[in-house]
Design a binder for these strands. Structure first.
Length: 807
DNA sequence: ATAGGGTTAG
């Protein structure tokens, strides 16, 4: 669909005041925030400006409105210097007020206040003060707003009016540590000046009281409301919104029910309140009533209800709302249609219809950062990283969210190196990362085992004042844990000002991973003692910790208390972990009983746990049964075959092992690539095991080449010959290096005595067919690597090793 | 020439 450009404005005819006035208004209507329109807009504006000059209408006292309109248009254009120049030639408070307001609306606080400062105090009037207070209020800066208000009070000649109080109250309402005493104080001041007679002041007072956390404050708000002789829709809406913000949707609803003539805004506020509280069903119910009672639906209604559908996963409902919007044929201006379209893009992309989402996105007349971010995260959520990267490159404007989504999208998609590259690019472009973006970059370091880099980022976090951010803190904690730096992880945990359940879980898991099983359990108990309810992840973590430490009875205990004390039904992952724990302890019989009491049919991961338990116990009969089940459920999963065949080999039943491998070949199952090594004399032979035609094999090769070259350059390669088997000839002779999720053999291993203890990155995925798993921690790149030879079979799935042995 | 509420992306 192509849009025809509008016919040019007949600017040349502008010579009379009414013609200029008309043209200025026309031009204002043509303004659009789209950057593509900016230059043509500015050209027309300058032309009109010239006409006004020749007609001598600029600064003519009788036509001041023309000057003001022109200045306002300039504040919408990229040329912000001209209004300042024009103002200096005629610095009156009226012009200043108009400019303050225009710049404040556009979010340019500094420009806004510069015009206030430019007017000498003696020439300022109340309106200019009011506009300036409101400018600070918009920028959420309470303190300067108050000080401007104070200087208004101290001016001697001027008195604050209802506008002054309304703006002041809204500014104070944005303070972080708003105390009820502030509200009362301001309430008194407004009362004594008589400003409370104005509806806007009373409404702002209600809003202010509702922003205090105390219950008494909400009573005060109610008292203001009850004492108002006249209330308007805003009065009620403020009350409803106030309760929603406090998280008390029920109170909001009961206020809503009090309202007599139901203004649509109150409905919208109530619906969006439900959406924000995750009570989508109630939002739908209200929406239906709105339709029945013929309350006019507007863009706010549609946007909220579409978002409710997307959040609740009710895509059919969302689609029918979409139909309803189309049928009602609303003539929304592009600005009003924008949020609806954004919500639609969200709906379809969350509903898995990314193509539909993209089509809507493409046909949108007006797009903003939200639109771009929506389609970007739509691709990220679907794992289409290349598409996402394309969108990211094409974005005409980005904000910190865009960067954050892209960086953490790369991390999530396993492309941590790309995440860090992008993060560095961001800094090179002088974009300031937000705490979530830092969290993404730090997570990338954790995945890559890049402790040094992670520590640097830690320093940046402190520098930027993000120390209090729980997302950054949790990312740091996890990163240190993955890099084996438990001490640092613990330190982060101790100094974090805001600890949430994610932090607790991360710390417990860090302890569990690194062999401090008992401490992990203690920390878990401490968490419960401090009144934090553990969630399903906490239990998964604690079961894993028990697994590592071999604490079978404790594992059982926590498993039991999960549903008994915390009302959480164990999922298949919890069962799988407990079964694994039992199997490892040789209590396969109990595992067998446990399966029978499970409220659901055993899943593949349960059978896998059973199978590896049987391997430990040599219970081949039950093991073969478990394998049968696995074959039936996931016939293409290579791990099963490998696990079973190795189980047979370990039991000395070579024929059975061979039979399983043949079955695997017959069914065309490809083996995931992985590495294995064997020491022969002074040589280490490194094998790439698995299917060379496996889609991931290529990636492993590429990875090894890069890392091998890097290691060679750094001089970390010992004299020993490394041979790579199962590879193309030119790919031989690379040193393998454990890195990110790809397991390989660490360089520098030979310098270490075998049998030393190892601290390991948990997230190494490719373990494949190896009999010896080598892992490392990247502390000080190589020199401090300690290694242990683990003579057992590992199979990794979803980032975790089936043996549960993370050392 | 100035004010107060409801919308969308993670």
């Amino acid at each position: 669909m192509t849009l025809r450009p509008p016919p040019p404005l007949p600017l040349a005819v502008a010579s009379l005041p009414h013609q200029c006035s008309l043209l200025l208004r026309r031009l204002a209507e043509r303004h659009s925030p789209a950057p593509a329109c900016a230059s043509s807009f500015l050209r027309a504006l300058r032309c009109l400006h010239a006409r006004l000059l020749t007609a001598k209408l600029l600064h003519a006292p009788s036509h001041r409105h023309l000057t003001l309109r022109l200045l306002h248009l300039y504040t919408l254009s990229p040329d912000l210097a001209t209004p300042a120049v024009l103002f200096r030639s005629d610095p009156c408070p009226v012009t200043a007020t108009s400019l303050v307001a225009a710049h404040a609306t556009a979010g340019r606080l500094r420009d806004a206040t510069s015009f206030f400062d430019a007017v000498p105090p003696a020439h300022r009037d109340t309106v200019l003060y009011n506009a300036t207070i409101s400018a600070f209020a918009r920028a959420s800066l309470a303190a300067p707003a108050v000080s401007v208000f104070r200087s208004l009070l101290g001016s001697g000649t001027l008195r604050p009016d209802d506008y002054s109080f309304t703006a002041l109250l809204s500014a104070v309402g944005q303070m972080h540590n708003l105390a009820a005493s502030h509200c009362t104080q301001l309430h008194c001041a407004a009362l004594s000046s008589g400003a409370t007679a104005a509806l806007s002041v009373s409404n702002a007072l209600i809003a202010l009281y509702m922003k205090c956390d105390t219950t008494e404050a909400s009573w005060d708000a109610r008292k203001v409301l009850d004492e108002m002789p006249n209330k308007d829709d805003l009065t009620w809406t403020t009350m409803v919104v106030g309760y929603v913000r406090r998280g008390d949707v029920h109170a909001a609803r009961s206020v809503f029910e009090e309202v007599d003539g139901k203004f649509d805004v109150v409905w919208n506020a109530m619906i969006s309140g439900y959406v924000q509280s995750g009570m989508c069903a109630d939002a739908f119910e209200l929406f239906r009533r709105m339709v029945l009672e013929k309350v006019p639906l507007d863009e706010f209604t549609f946007t909220s209800i579409l978002s409710a559908s997307a959040n609740a996963g009710f895509f059919v409902h969302g689609k029918s709302v979409h139909g309803q919007i189309i049928r009602s044929q609303p003539d929304f201006v592009p600005e009003a249609a924008l949020p609806i379209n954004n919500a639609l893009v969200t709906l379809y992309s969350k509903g898995g219809k990314i193509l539909v989402a993209k089509r809507i996105f493409d046909t949108m007349k007006l797009k903003d950062v939200v639109s771009w971010n929506t389609i970007l995260s739509g691709y990220i959520d679907r794992g289409c990283l290349d598409k996402a990267a394309e969108v990211f490159e094409a974005m005409p404007y980005k904000n910190d969210l865009s960067w954050m989504v892209m960086v953490s999208g790369y991390v999530h998609g396993g492309l941590s190196e790309d995440a860090l590259k992008l993060f560095n690019k961001m800094r090179a472009e002088d974009v300031k990362p937000c705490d979530y973006t830092y969290a993404g970059a730090i997570a990338a370091c954790g995945e890559l085992g890049a402790l040094k880099h992670g520590k640097q980022l830690h320093a940046h976090i402190v520098q930027c004042g993000f120390e209090a951010s729980s997302s950054a803190g949790n990312a740091l904690l996890t990163m240190y844990a993955k890099c084996g730096a438990v001490k640092d992880a613990r330190l982060v945990f101790l100094v974090m000002p805001n600890i949430d359940s994610v932090s607790w879980n991360a710390m417990i898991s860090a302890l569990g991973q690194h062999g401090h099983g008992r401490e992990a359990l203690e920390l878990f108990d401490q968490m419960v003692a401090e009144g934090i309810d553990p969630d399903r992840i906490s239990f998964l973590t604690i079961l894993t910790a028990c697994n590592h430490a071999g604490l079978v009875d404790e594992g059982f205990h926590y498993f039991e208390s999960m549903k008994m004390h915390f009302g959480i039904n164990p999922g298949e992952d919890h069962y799988a972990r407990l079964i694994d724990l039992l199997g490892r302890a040789g209590r396969i019989g109990e595992a067998r009983d446990l399966i029978k009491t499970m409220p659901f049919e055993p899943t593949p991961s349960i059978w896998e746990a059973i199978l590896s338990g049987c391997r430990t116990n040599g219970d081949m009969e039950f093991g073969a049964y478990a394998a049968d089940q696995l074959f039936r459920m996931t016939p293409q999963h290579d791990g099963t075959y490998i696990l079973l065949s190795n189980t047979y080999s370990a039991a000395g039943r070579w024929l059975d092992a061979a039979r399983v491998r043949k079955l695997m070949r017959d069914r065309g199952v490809k083996k995931e690539p992985g590495c294995s090594w064997i020491e022969v004399g002074s040589k280490i032979h490194v094998f790439l095991v698995g299917d060379t035609k496996h889609p991931e094999a290529h990636e492993v090769y590429r990875f090894l080449e890069v890392v091998g070259a890097r290691m060679r350059k750094l001089g970390y390669i010992p004299d020993t010959k490394f041979v790579l088997h199962d590879m193309e000839p030119h790919q031989k002779e690379y040193v393998l290096f454990a890195h990110s999720e790809k397991l390989a053999v660490g360089f520098g291993l030979l310098k270490l005595p075998p049998g030393a203890t190892v601290t390991v990155l948990k997230n190494l995925r490719i373990c494949g067919d190896c009999h010896t798993a080598m892992m490392f921690m990247s502390k000080a790149v190589g020199r401090e690597i300690v290694v242990r030879d683990v003579r057992r079979f590992h199979h990794f799935k979803d980032g975790e090793c089936s043996c549960g042995n993370y050392w």
